[in-house]
Simulated assay, not measured.
Amino acid sequence: MGVVPVNAVPRRIVSARASLVLSVVVFLAAALLLPWVGAGPISLTNVLHHQSPDYEILLQLRLSRTLLALLAGGALSLAGALFQAMLRDALATPYTLGISAGSALGAVIAITIGGETLLGIPMTWLGSLVGAFAVLALVLGGAFRRRQVSSFGLLLTGIAVNSICEAFILILSSFAGMSRSFSIARWLIGSVDSVSYTSLAMLAAVVLIASGILFSRARSWNLLAVSERWAASRGVNVGTLLGQGYILGSILVAGSIALTGPIGFVGLIVPHLVRSRVSPDYRLLMPCSFLLGGSLLALCDAIGRIVIPPAELPAGAVVALIGGPYLVWIIRQRTPAEEL
């Protein structure tokens, strides 16, 4: 019988811990440094003495949008890792299962109808949330009638919902006026803007609760990522797990999109990089994806602020410029066996 080296297991544990610690450091560095990045410099002395306009620019504009990018990017990246486990496909994203399309359609309807706020809440936020949860209810309602949920059924439903929602978005854009068509196009690009700290606190609470539940089920996601039969043979209630995953993933995606608009590729790039460079173990993959996904979106938002000052590039456009070539590279790296 072969002898296992004494240092083998500790080395793997240290490697995993080092990856997680590095992800935390990157996340904290983004939170501390990126608010200072912008078209114009900010004086640290003026900020410390609460002098205008530097203090207001940092606290009310840049810091809030950096925190929003960290939360939204983390939520989208975590949802991407989750959906990749559910569908067992490294190219799955938070947009594969139709939630983002429903959220986008809800926001477009709100923009088309008009009106700024309802009960103090922006109409686009409400429309986005209602659209996302309408799709969630539609998918899970159909699954409940069949008394089972399968990853294949979720995938087909997501494809159908995406097509239907995109068709309605095109129809609404065609009949909307010039100014509203411009607002629709701008929202669909996806951007990170400053929001109130009350909104940030609500998003943080939702994201942290959903993330904590997903982290606690990491062992089950590991089993499901192999196959549904494998997970079931190890005592996992696959239908319940898929239902929980779809609900929690939908909450993460809907909450993020309601504040930023549909931002793509974050949920594809980061989980794939963590899986290939760090570990496919969801006990490590999920938290690292959350931390690095938030850092990536915050970095893209900072880049968009300084590329063409005083104008800004939307964070969604910057992410797309990075994610598009990366997606092509991923496809070229896939083997024939993986494509079958």
Rank of each mutant, 00 (worst) to 15 (best):
I171W: 10
S174A: 08
I213E: 05
P262T: 06
L22T: 09
G239F: 00
A337F: 05
S163L: 13
I263N: 02
G73C: 01
L140T: 01
S179E: 15
I184R: 13
W230K: 06
A110W: 03
G243P: 01
F27A: 13
L242Q: 04
I322F: 06
N46R: 14
I164Y: 13
L70K: 01
L76W: 03
P53V: 11
R145D: 06
Y55T: 07
P314S: 05
A110Q: 08
R11I: 12
R17T: 13
V14H: 07
L32P: 01
L32Y: 00
R217S: 13
W329H: 06
A137Q: 02
G80H: 08
V26I: 15
G114Q: 11
S23R: 07
V274E: 06
D301N: 06
L63D: 11
L155K: 04
G212W: 03
P310H: 09
L291I: 04
V25T: 13
S211C: 14
I169V: 14
S64W: 03
L200F: 01
S52W: 02
L105F: 15
V139Q: 12
A107T: 04
S64T: 14
T45C: 01
L44F: 14
D193L: 12
L28F: 14
L273E: 09
F265D: 13
L68Y: 08
P122E: 13
S227Y: 02
R145V: 11
R11L: 13
T157R: 04
A18L: 15
Y326N: 07
I13G: 03
G255N: 05
F215W: 12
S173R: 10
V3C: 03
W36V: 07
P5Y: 03
I269P: 00
C300V: 07
A81C: 10
L259Y: 05
E166M: 14
G316V: 02
